[in-house]
Design a protein around this nucleic acid. Sequence first.
DNA 1: GTCTATAGTCGGATAGAC
DNA 2: GTCTATCCGACTATAGAC
Lengths: 227, 227
Amino acid sequence: MTRELFPSSPNKGEQARRGLLLSALEKFGQRGYENASVREIAEAAGQNVGAIAYYFGNKESLYAEVLKGIGAYLRSVLGETADELRERLAGGSLDPDSARSALKHIFRTMLGEQIEGDFDKIRSVMMREQSSPSESFDLLYRDTIRPLHDLLTRVFAVATGEDPEGPLAIVRTHALFGQVIVFTMARETIRRRLGVRKLGPEHAAMIGGVIDEHVDLICRGLTPKKP
Amino acid sequence: MTRELFPSSPNKGEQARRGLLLSALEKFGQRGYENASVREIAEAAGQNVGAIAYYFGNKESLYAEVLKGIGAYLRSVLGETADELRERLAGGSLDPDSARSALKHIFRTMLGEQIEGDFDKIRSVMMREQSSPSESFDLLYRDTIRPLHDLLTRVFAVATGEDPEGPLAIVRTHALFGQVIVFTMARETIRRRLGVRKLGPEHAAMIGGVIDEHVDLICRGLTPKKP
DNA sequence: GTCTATAGTCGGATAGAC
DNA sequence: GTCTATCCGACTATAGAC
């Protein structure tokens, strides 16, 4: 499992490339694609302007590489869990209770990552892509977002007995998903509301508990009773 | 109730000013503050470059005026409902069932606005502000976002019998709020997942129904039983 | 009041030195 | 491979014409 952004070999050239990708992620996140200049990206990485042309050709290709790296990172975070779930779904060996547990486990992982992991740097770029998708967003959506969203929907459908292909399951899953990502997307708002300087592990634990409860209530409430 | 963006008198000067504000909102939303040029804003409004300097002084003040207008618009959308709720909260005349209904009503209004109303133009600017707040964001938070979030929390606390001052009610409310705004914030994702070209009123209705159900399940599940 | 011309700054890309 | 110098275009702001 590669839980690292832009993994690279320790060659000098590879390291320079990785440094450029890291500072590009930061600057693109802070200032947006068009307003982040290749000059400042190179400078922040301790490189010169020409290095970007050398390693990536031009600004646009650099950005595309950053998005690719984000996709790989996100997939690596949930990789094992996702693979296991896909197998059990294919084999039909996933029961509603396990599905609900899996859902909670994925949400906990996403939440932990968003509050503690490298996600902080990824967050702004993802949000910008959601509000005005670039050409490279297609790739991120196809390889990462859609597969994950689809998996969540199918797991949710097992947990509640709904039709996994219908729009209702998709919309419900998206709403549940919203309970998690709102703590990232509107992080500034919840931070100020809780009156803390920074969201830490103790908040992640509390928020995780709340989301677990909500998922339980919604899934149990939607499942046709039979005790 | 002023459900209009940048209301103005019909004077020629006022109309020119309003036209500039409208195209500024559009361009700032499409391209971000730094990358939207005053030239294109003026051109889109059928004005010349100098007009911006004349009416607003400079680009930054123009942006601040746009944010002010957004705040006024958002407050106007929920204005009556919010005022009524605050009165009933202050008077202690809000029972749990009415509180839950009010919550659903507010979420429906927000959702409808986000999908059908003028919110489309506002959306991008708001999202950009969440991901990298400008100086003017403080004003928007204090006058609009915090009061609304606080009201929602207090109404939710009545609906479930929780402590309105405790962090749990705030976190739960934020999670519920997430179910609504995820359809705006991750709109591109849900659009593609549903396989439609554009989210319309029929989707707003379905999504509203789903959120109503989820709110009911969560609120009822959290309320200590006593039937 | 309204518009034009221009000064000054900063951007991406590139050619070529080392 | 690595870095510098430079070109050309686009931007904001402003001074001043009408």
